[in-house]
Design a protein around this nucleic acid. Structure first.
Length: 620
RNA sequence: AGCGGGUUGGAGUAGUCAGGUUAUCUCGUCGGGCUCAUAACCCGGAGACCGGUGGUUCAAAUCCACCACCCGCUACCA
């Protein structure tokens, strides 16, 4: 079904004139059986036309850094099958005429200027400023979606993934309509998808908001909108527009791209055990604490770092001390008042006296709603947290604890009416925080005794001053428990260790031993580093000259730049593999390999020799 | 090396597109207050020549040029 829709889109765009056919030259390998296989640039290897080094790839040479047209490479060979004959052949492809959409996309992006976040604006602007060019929608491979055209020249080509993948947003709605909606009694039936995808004449359209990592931005601000604009303009180029008319497919309302979240300064990596182990975490801790920190630390405008110490700090201070404690204050104070099964604050409740505070609260809520509509979740959450801060300050001012057991008086009435207001604020906070920290919201909603469904209350109505004050006579409990950094670090460490052991037992469970003869094949020796130079063509590599025997040296490339300075290395006695086949690393031949230890968390330490020994001594 | 992004009080961050009163918020810190609450809460203060240099402008964190450092992806390494 998805295939069918993609093919239909392809045919439509072709019919409307937005696809053009072009001949391009590309390498292909010829099989012995006469089969022809086209090769992407990166599968072609050969001799560099600039420096004559072997091992140049596709359209770029690693040795000298030169770039060139792919068909300039000398002695081209296929990486997949080096024996095969290889030659340049013409191949036909369809290209999507992105350039036709340049103007409309520029208009569209300038309309989005205030909505898009800076990273989205910048990346899109960069693409538009470079000028859009036609982009191939077909390629020479034998897997993927077939090209819906007659003719043998298309039978071993497929639709390019960039063109097809984004259409999933659209195709899934149509698939859903066909499979499920059509069998309901909804009058729109199989056309129900249009409610989400087509503009109607009332001007009340579904909003399309795309969430992604930063690497996906141009696909959602350029390519996918261009495809949609194309589908919306069957009449041809001069009718392309960024305006969405009635019955058109809808364009994005916002593309919300986040940057990357890092862990303790490094990338998250499951294989390196550099990760937060969610299932194990959730067994021990409250999901809301994690949700709070992930939201307040979301990489909305640039990369951010997940750090356990900061996590504990922010959760303890902001979530628990400010919000959690505010709730707890209101609850425990109120429960100290005598109650006959009804809310004891009812008789003091007088929200009309607090219109300026209520105005302020509604202001925070409005700001939060605005922020959320722009997908600025940190800002939204901060605004909501301001409400509990205001609550704390109201309590401080009113000091209801002074009046709990006191006789009736005007000041008691005033003080407890403030407490009643903060009770309403608790309700309000439960609703406002429900999207962020749902579990504690539900818990709070129950403690408040509220009988209506929390999900039926809109944020903008959450500071309700007319509703009844409900009551739950159960003794209130704190929403959160404070976190302890040492415990967390301890359990995280033991966790990743136990995962290590688990992996080791899997990996070494039986036949994975090597025999002694194999081990002896590896010739390890000691050597003394005499000279360290920067590699001219690589960021991480040093060229290290080691004295590998008395009066003999060899050069080895090692990726140690991130971990050692040149001064650190020179003079060290190290261990290296002496009989490794020499290999070229970004243009420099490396004759061996230094031994180093890697803990998987970004720490790398060279193996050094304890004391002096003649260079070239065997290691056994 | 190619492409993209970043640099704002001690830490983290908003504001940069569209230049314009006292540069935002959280934490920390200092002083005071409160004692209901989970050593928590409230009030106030100190602390930033907005990475550097030059330019445009009546006016620059914001625009332009150059430089430095950092990060991500690609490549490579242990």
């Amino acid at each position: 079904m998805h295939k069918k829709i993609v093919q239909e889109v392809f045919l439509n765009l072709l019919e409307y004139g937005y696809l053009e056919r072009k001949t391009m030259q590309q390498y292909c390998s010829l099989g012995t059986d006469g089969s022809v296989r086209f090769l992407p640039d990166r599968y072609v290897e050969g001799t560099c036309p600039a420096c004559s080094e072997d091992g140049a790839r596709g359209d770029q040479c690693d040795s000298c850094g030169a770039t060139y047209e792919a068909n300039e490479i000398l002695n081209p060979k296929s990486k997949l099958d080096p024996e095969a004959k290889i030659e340049v052949r013409d191949t036909e492809h369809y290209f999507f005429r992105l350039n036709d959409f340049q103007n409309s996309l520029e208009n569209h992006s300038s309309e989005r200027k205030s909505k898009w976040k800076p990273n989205v604006r910048a990346m899109t602007k960069n693409w538009l400023d470079m000028g859009l060019r036609p982009r191939a929608v077909t390629r020479d491979i034998d897997w993927g979606i077939e090209i819906p055209l007659e003719g043998i020249e298309w039978s071993n080509k497929r639709i390019y993934v960039w063109f097809e993948a984004v259409q999933g947003y659209y195709s899934c709605a149509r698939i859903w309509s066909e499979r499920y909606a059509s069998s309901t009694d909804n009058p729109d039936g199989i056309r129900l998808w249009e409610r989400w995808w087509k503009a109607n004449d009332q001007g009340v359209n579904a909003k399309h908001i795309y969430f992604m990592g930063k690497d996906n931005i141009p696909f959602h601000t350029i390519i996918w909108p261009a495809i949609i604009m194309g589908l919306n303009s069957p009449e041809g180029i001069e009718y392309i527009s960024h305006h969405v008319n009635s019955n058109d497919l809808l364009l994005e309302d916002n593309v919300s791209a986040n940057e990357y979240l890092m862990l303790q300064g490094g990338q998250f990596s499951k294989s390196r055990k550099h990760a937060v182990w969610l299932p194990a975490y959730l067994e021990r801790y409250d999901p809301d604490a994690l949700r709070y920190y992930l939201t307040i630390n979301m990489p909305e405008t640039h990369d951010t770092d997940f750090r356990w110490d900061e996590y504990v700090d922010r959760v303890n201070n902001e979530l628990i001390s400010n919000y959690g404690n505010f709730i707890h204050r209101v609850m425990t104070l109120t429960h100290r008042l005598p109650s006959n099964g009804i809310n004891p604050l009812e008789e003091y409740d007088n929200p009309k006296n607090f219109s300026s505070y209520i105005y302020e609260i509604n202001n925070y809520i409005d700001e939060a709603i605005n922020s959320m509509e722009k997908q600025r979740f940190k800002e939204a959450l901060r605004n909501i947290m301001s409400i509990s801060q205001l609550g704390n300050s109201l309590l401080q001012e009113a000091a209801p604890w002074k009046y709990i057991g006191a006789d009736s008086s005007e000041s008691k009435t005033n003080s407890l009416s403030t407490l009643a207001l903060t009770w309403r604020m608790c309700s309000c906070l439960a609703v406002c925080l429900r999207p962020f920290i749902p579990f504690s919201s539900d818990k709070l909603w129950k403690m408040l005794g509220n009988e209506n469904d929390i999900d039926n209350v809109l944020l903008k109505n959450s500071m309700n001053i007319d509703s009844k004050l409900y009551w739950n006579s159960d003794k209130p409990t704190a929403l959160f428990k404070k976190l302890d950094l040492e415990n967390i670090i301890k359990s995280e460490t033991s966790l990743s260790n136990s995962i290590d052991k688990l992996d080791d037992s899997v990996n070494n469970g039986g036949s994975d031993y090597i025999n002694f003869e194999d081990f002896l094949k590896v010739e390890m020796k000691t050597g003394k580093i005499v000279l360290v130079e920067d590699h001219p063509n690589a960021d991480k590599l040093y060229i290290i000259t080691i004295e590998d025997a008395p009066d003999s040296t060899r050069k080895v490339c090692a990726g140690l730049k991130e971990y050692y300075t040149i001064e650190d290395l020179e003079g060290l006695n190290v261990a290296f593999v002496a009989n490794l086949e020499p290999r070229k690393l970004r243009g420099i031949t490396s004759e061996g390999m230094l031994l180093a230890a890697d803990d998987g968390n970004g720490n790398v330490k060279l193996l050094t020799i304890d004391g002096d020994i003649i260079p070239g001594s065997k290691i056994r």
